[in-house]
Design a protein around this nucleic acid. Structure first.
Length: 271
DNA sequence: CCGACAACCTGACGGC
DNA sequence: TGCCGTCAGGTTGTCG
């Protein structure tokens, strides 16, 4: 379930086994995921020491002492497995460290991606150029959001899914944030009151941070990155909860389809 | 510029 | 047991 919190959780889980470690084996097991895997990936990474792990939006970043950054995206179904018992058919990249750990990037649907860039040229990465601000960073302000939504007639839900507006939100956490902020998902983005905007700007980091914290505890329990929906779903306010009660006012949660994707919301408080 | 829609790919699940 | 339809966390391109 890789939205921002899951990628962040993944990065945190990978740090202990990768940071400061030398990669002794790098094995791509197919030529492409969503797009081609760089042909020189094995050659450039083998023998390199991982210096640092990071995240931008839903992308994980793995820096090496050779000045390269491996950029991974988990798509819809991607996750890293640490020390798997055996290699599965959807393990598309294998890494082995000098310390003896084995990592596998597993992605059945292959909507994910792998890219390798020089670290100092990271801003040139096409997918990064149009990204909006990080929702957990200082750039996401009411002023920014108000300006970005001004005049937009598209439903606020779709605008929040647009990575150019805010980078890192996906279907689950947009539903969650809109419920917490008590905003109707179909409300035109430009039509939000400043009060609603205020609630939204508070709800977004709140929802994401709670999910990361839950992921963190999950990680401690499972000791490895894992994108299974089940781990976080017990804390969802509305997502996947059609027919259940809204935690704010007990309204009955409904599901509707917008732009081909499910929206879960409470008609009572999200007006 | 905008919105609607299809496409990419596999697996899980429910109904019959 | 199996077959079929539906659905799933994301992104990108095309068309009107």
């Amino acid at each position: 379930m890789p939205e921002l919190p899951e990628v962040e959780t993944t990065v945190r889980g990978l740090r202990p086994v990768l940071e400061g470690r030398r990669l002794t084996r790098v094995e791509p097991r197919r030529a492409d995921l969503r797009h081609a895997i760089p042909a020189d990936l094995r050659q450039r990474l083998t023998g390199a020491v991982v210096t640092q792990l990071g995240r931008r939006a839903k992308y994980g970043l793995i820096d090496t002492d050779r000045g390269d950054t491996l950029i991974f995206h988990l798509g819809m179904s991607g996750r890293w497995r640490i020390d798997p018992a055996e290699i599965g058919k959807h393990d598309h990249l294998l890494l082995e460290t000098e310390a003896g750990h084995r990592l596998a990037l597993n992605d059945p649907r292959r909507f994910g991606s792998l890219d390798l860039l020089q670290t100092e040229r990271l801003e040139d990465f096409p997918a990064f150029k149009a990204l909006g601000p990080e929702p957990l960073g200082p750039e996401l302000t009411i002023a920014y959001l108000a300006q970005k939504l001004d005049g937009r007639t598209a439903p606020i839900k779709l605008l929040l899914l647009d990575q150019r507006v805010i980078a890192g939100l996906g279907n689950i956490y947009v539903c969650e944030a809109l419920n917490l902020a008590r905003i109707n998902p179909r409300k035109p983005g430009g039509g939000l009151s400043s009060i609603a905007l205020q609630r939204l700007i508070e709800a977004i980091p709140k929802v994401l941070t709670a999910a990361i914290d839950a992921g963190g505890s999950t990680l401690r329990d499972y000791a490895r990155p894992d994108g299974e929906l089940g781990y976080f779903s017990s804390q969802f306010r509305v997502y996947g909860r059609e027919g259940e009660k809204c935690p704010y006012d007990g309204g009955t949660i409904r599901r509707q389809v917008d732009g081909g994707r499910s929206t879960f919301w409470c008609p009572k408080c999200q007006r």
